[in-house]
Every structure is written in structure tokens, then in C-alpha cells.
């Protein structure tokens, strides 16, 4: 089942990255860009578990960094997203995966991602970070993430049930996000 999970992760992350660069970034939404990648990583981690979440986060971050308009150092987003994927898969017990917990988690993750990338970029000497605008960006990013979550998480859970139906042993607990649909 490993290759099926790999396929699922690659597919979801790829589609999310293309959509984010060509559609979401260009809609002119104020203050921040809806962070579809982070929501997708959280959704994958919820559906597949912490290891797969970390792998998905790493791949998503790498893809963001190599996708053309990006001019950030390769690896920064990988590091941030893999932590998000791992933590999500690790701290959320399958029984706690209600709509509200998932949405709150996505809000925290998107806010954390915006803050962490700004902090790491600044530490690495990027001249771009405007600290006075960081709070706005972080809050807006969290808000958009929370709004995306009810669309993305059930879709990824549904895909995961179709493409990679056998959950890993430590996660063989009944319903996964059934109450979200």
C-alpha cells in the first residue's frame, strides 16, 4: 500500500501547489494568500498518520520552493511543513477528529506556517520580511485556512479512503472524519 499512499500524497500536493500558484495567488485576496498547501498537508496527516504527514509536508514544501515564482531558499518550507504534518498526525487522536478540532488545527497550522517562514527567512537574512505586516498576514492566513478546511479535509479523506484504503496499524481505529461530510 506504500506506493498508493505515495501516489495520493504526490497527487494531492501537486494539485494543491498548481492551484495555489495559478489561481489562489492571483485572485487578489487581501492581506494573505489562502495557504492551500498547508491545509492539504494537514488533511493528508489526518487521513494517513504522522509519518505520512511529515513526508507530505516535506514534499509540499519542496514543491512550493521549486515552483517558479518562488525565490525563497530551498528547504525552508519543507522544514516548516514537515513539522506541521508530523505534529498534526501525532497530536490528534483519530477519535478527536471533529469538524471543529480539524478547523482549529488548520487555523493554528496556517498561522504557524506564516509566522515560521517569516521568522526563518528573517534569520537567513532575507531583506523582505516586513514585521509590521506579519500579524495581519498571520491572522488572514489562519482565517483563509479555516475557511478552506471544510472543503479540503473531507475531499482528501474521501480520496484516501478510495486510493489508499488500508490505514497503518497504529491508526486502525474506526471512523475517520465521517462527521465532516
Amino acid at each position: 500500500m506504500i506506493w498508493r499512499q505515495g501516489l495520493l500524497i504526490l497527487g494531492v500536493v501537486f494539485v494543491a501547489d498548481v492551484l495555489q500558484a495559478t489561481v489562489l495567488s492571483r485572485l487578489g485576496i487581501p492581506a494573505a494568500t489562502p495557504d492551500l498547501l498547508v491545509v492539504a498537508v494537514v488533511a493528508l496527516a489526518l487521513a494517513l498518520g504522522p509519518t505520512e504527514g511529515a513526508i507530505a509536508g516535506f514534499l509540499a514544501g519542496a514543491l512550493v520552493d521549486i515552483s517558479p515564482p518562488s525565490d525563497t531558499p530551498l528547504g525552508v518550507n519543507s522544514l516548516v511543513y514537515l513539522v506541521i504534518g508530523f505534529v498534526t498526525g501525532f497530536v490528534i487522536h483519530p477519535r478527536d477528529r471533529t469538524v471543529w478540532v480539524s478547523m482549529g488545527l488548520v487555523g493554528l497550522s496556517t498561522a504557524g506556517a506564516a509566522l515560521a517562514t517569516a521568522a526563518i527567512d528573517a534569520l537567513l537574512g532575507s531583506p523582505r520580511v516586513i514585521w509590521s505586516e506579519v500579524p495581519t498576514v498571520v491572522l488572514a492566513s489562519a482565517l483563509y485556512g479555516v475557511l478552506l478546511a471544510p472543503l479540503v479535509i473531507p475531499a482528501v479523506a474521501w480520496l484516501a479512503a478510495r486510493v489508499a484504503p488500508a490505514p497503518p496499524a497504529e491508526l486502525r481505529l474506526p471512523p475517520r472524519i465521517t462527521d465532516m461530510s
Partner: peptide, 12 residues
């Protein structure tokens, strides 16, 4: 055809 996310403060 594509724009970088506002989160990384770059205009590319």
C-alpha cells in the same frame, strides 16, 4: 501565469 504567495513577502 502564476504569482508567489503573499506569505513570504516576495513580489515575484
Amino acid at each position: 501565469i502564476a504569482v508567489g504567495p503573499a506569505q513570504d513577502f516576495s513580489w515575484t
